[in-house]
Design a protein around this nucleic acid. Structure first.
Lengths: 235, 235
DNA sequence: GCGCATAGTATGGTCAGACCACACTTCGAA
DNA sequence: TTCGAAGTGTGGTCTGACCATACTATGCGC
């Protein structure tokens, strides 16, 4: 009965990198040593190093690319939503979580962010200006549905960013991504989509107006109705 | 300029498994085909199949074990907290921990869960009974500090589970895991820890009492004070 | 027929070594 | 000076091998 049940080889690399991140030896934008170098450093095979890198990749912590030069190899980025949304999506598929839970969580996070007093008034004003532009772009009748959803997501994330909490922001983004597949499937891209998008535009404008006039509680309420209504259409 | 920029080999397996999960061909508890079999099915190497399995493992979607028989190989589970907390922890390491954001998020999630009417009264009663046991165990003066934190975490997660939202529960658990390292560092394990733990015990009991007597709003308020106070001690 | 040690078999975990496509770097020819 | 060709280092993939493990089947002794 060993106290060392299964020391995965790749864990060594993962721990080493996490430690370097904490100590500041590695920072955003830095390049990781090459796989062959890491393998030699830790005295493990390149295959195991690749396991670790692959995990960091999926978690949205590094971006890998082939070739040589300053932008090649594994570069440290920070895209928390990538890993989390992937995880949520798979668990959704596996029925480990359900749509109700996602919607509940979205409402929780977004209404909280709406009611929170902005941490940075200057940034808040910028957000209000930029979301106004997004609303105009969503009015374009020529817009493809994918593009609409993309701008829609940006709209919501921008508003939430006013609260100045990146953790909440990342979770929100992840929730949106995780469920986009489901949304695309459950509302067919035909004539039934047109009435929906008209309501969404109206709701976005009302939400934006509430923010612009600093009626934050009303904004929160409108967001809750917006989200609830939208998912009531998916079925 | 190909339309096929970089079709990672492991993605094929991932897509196939996700699709099987959606269609119900694969369900929780099922065993995945062996790595060698999957490699042949998809006409890729075992190494690439392993990439896919490794990802599912990190995401908390499968559990792998060696040997043969019904419990060997890759078995489908659903442990959303695993992947999310790993992702969150690494990103916090990369960006530098912002305690304010963590505290804000914890308060948001836990007070929400406290105020939410229980989805399952029977389960709620079980939670109240089990948390009572945890409180008693935390009274043990012989308890190591690590053990105390472990039980403490279980206490909070259990209470939050009453709301019946796995996503919120996973996010909570992830937040706790992600900063346990920080907490352990910032409160030295000496005489300064003893007064803290006494207050924590008292707060836990008050929270439990509020739940047991169905004063959910009061419980939420106590939890907020509990979390705020605790982090005010870390520095 | 029963009990139990043994050999067999399939699993994931790890390793070594090879080849590829790619992107940048270097350097020589025009 | 310019520009194209060769060089070099990167991750991506593949092959084939060996290991420890955990179950399964065998067959021996009784």
């Amino acid at each position: 009965m060993s106290i060392n049940p299964a020391p995965r080889a790749y864990q060594v690399v993962l721990d080493s990198i996490e430690s370097d991140l904490r100590s500041g030896k590695l920072a955003l934008g830095d390049q990781l040593p090459g796989e062959r170098a890491l393998a030699e450093q830790h005295q493990i095979s390149r295959a195991s190093v690749r396991d670790a890198i692959r995990i960091l990749d999926v978690l949205g912590l590094v971006k890998t690319s082939t070739g040589s030069g300053p932008n090649s190899g594994a570069v440290i980025i920070s895209n928390p939503a990538a890993g989390i949304s992937q995880a949520l999506r798979m668990h959704l598929a596996a029925k480990g979580i359900n749509v109700r839970e996602i919607v509940e969580s979205r409402i929780l996070l977004e209404t909280w962010a709406a009611q929170m007093p902005p941490r940075n008034p200057h940034h808040a004003q910028q957000v209000i200006d930029r979301t106004a532009v997004l609303i105009m772009r969503m009015d374009d009748a020529q817009l493809s549905r994918e593009e609409f959803h993309r701008i829609d997501a940006e709209f919501h994330v921008l508003l939430a960013s006013m609260a100045g909490n990146t953790v909440v922001e990342s979770m929100m983004e992840s929730l949106r991504h995780s469920i986009s597949h489901y949304v695309a499937e459950s509302i067919p891209n035909d004539e039934s989509w047109q009435p929906v998008v008209r309501v969404l535009r109206r709701q976005h404008k009302a939400i934006h107006h509430a923010f612009a006039t600093n009626q934050r509680e009303r904004a929160a309420q409108l967001i809750e109705e917006h989200i609830t209504w939208f998912y009531s259409q998916t079925r």
